[in-house]
Each structure stands twice: as C-alpha cells, then as structure tokens.
Amino acid sequence: MNGEIIIDKEKILERWAEYIRELFKDDRKDHNIMKNNFAGPPIMKEEVEADINKMKHGKATGPDNISVELINALEDFGIGKVTHLLNEIYDTGQIPTNLSKSIFIALPKKPGATECELH
C-alpha cells in the first residue's frame, strides 16, 4: 500500500484479498469454462494412478479435505472416481467451482514481516 501499518482486522483481510487478486490476476471472461475444440482419447485410469503416485504425502488438504493418502487408501475405487471426475471435466469443459478455490495461509518469511510480499 503506501507504507502504513493496518491494524483493523477487516482492513487487513481486504488488503490480503487485494494482494491475492493482483497476484493471480485473470483477465479471462469466464475462467471456469474451458474451450473444448478438440477430440481426444479419454484420460486413462493408469495415467491418473501414475500421477497420484508421484504426489507428495503428508501435505495439507484443500477445501475438499481429500488427501493423497485417502485416495491411495481407496485403491482402485478411489482412482476410478478421480478418473471419472477428470474425464467429466475434460468432456464438458466445466470445472467444478470448489476445485477452483484456494486457501491461503500467510506465513512470514522473516520475523516481524508487515507486507504481504514478505509472507
């Protein structure tokens, strides 16, 4: 901003929202709809399984609370469900709203950080 330290909680949240919007600025008109101008083979279960196996374990979950460990524990059933979801997105071009949400946790890079950029 202009160097002033914000102490009001609502204003802090507004500033973070502004910072994140600018950081991830997206000028597309409708960013949740993909243009499907091509026909290709469906996503295969083996591809999904290989990619899930490459993912790091022990990471925090997103808004859906689904971890890599949970998908792995569901074995063939879980891989099948994820494959079905990905093919549905691929075929329709519609990305579910809750898959386009993110949660940000501001962790300071240095003690006493007061600017968004230093988190």
Rank of each mutant, 00 (worst) to 15 (best):
G40R: 11
G40K: 09
G40V: 05
P41R: 11
P42L: 08
P42F: 06
P42Q: 06
I43N: 02
I43S: 02
I43W: 07
M44H: 09
M44E: 09
M44V: 04
M44S: 09
M44F: 07
K45M: 09
K45D: 08
E46D: 10
E46M: 03
E46R: 05
E47M: 02
E47P: 01
V48Y: 05
V48W: 07
V48E: 02
V48A: 02
V48S: 00
E49C: 05
E49G: 00
E49D: 04
E49Q: 12
A50K: 07
A50C: 03
D51F: 15
D51C: 10
D51E: 12
D51V: 15
D51N: 08
I52F: 06
I52Q: 04
I52C: 04
I52P: 02
I52H: 02
N53C: 05
N53S: 06
N53Q: 10
N53L: 10
N53T: 02
K54G: 00
K54V: 04
K54Y: 03
M55Q: 07
M55D: 04
M55P: 02
M55N: 04
K56W: 05
H57A: 14
H57K: 15
H57Q: 14
H57N: 15
G58Y: 03
G58S: 12
G58N: 11
K59Q: 13
K59R: 15
A60Q: 11
T61D: 09
T61S: 14
G62V: 14
G62E: 12
G62W: 14
G62F: 13
G62A: 13
P63N: 13
P63Y: 15
P63D: 10
D64A: 10
D64C: 11
D64L: 10
D64Q: 10
N65P: 08
N65E: 14
N65D: 15
N65M: 12
I66A: 07
I66T: 11
I66H: 08
I66N: 08
I66C: 10
I66W: 10
S67R: 10
S67A: 12
S67T: 13
V68F: 04
V68P: 06
V68G: 08
E69I: 08
E69H: 04
E69W: 03
E69Q: 14
E69D: 11
L70H: 08
L70Q: 11
L70D: 05
L70N: 06
L70E: 07
I71C: 03
N72S: 13
N72I: 08
N72M: 13
A73I: 03
A73P: 01
L74S: 06
L74K: 05
L74W: 05
L74I: 00
E75V: 04
D76H: 08
D76Y: 04
D76S: 13
F77P: 00
F77C: 01
F77Y: 09
G78E: 01
G78A: 01
G78N: 02
G78L: 01
I79N: 00
I79F: 05
I79L: 00
I79Y: 07
G80P: 01
G80N: 06
G80M: 02
G80S: 11
G80V: 01
K81N: 03
K81T: 08
K81V: 15
V82P: 02
T83M: 00
T83V: 03
H84E: 08
H84Y: 14
H84C: 05
H84T: 05
H84W: 14
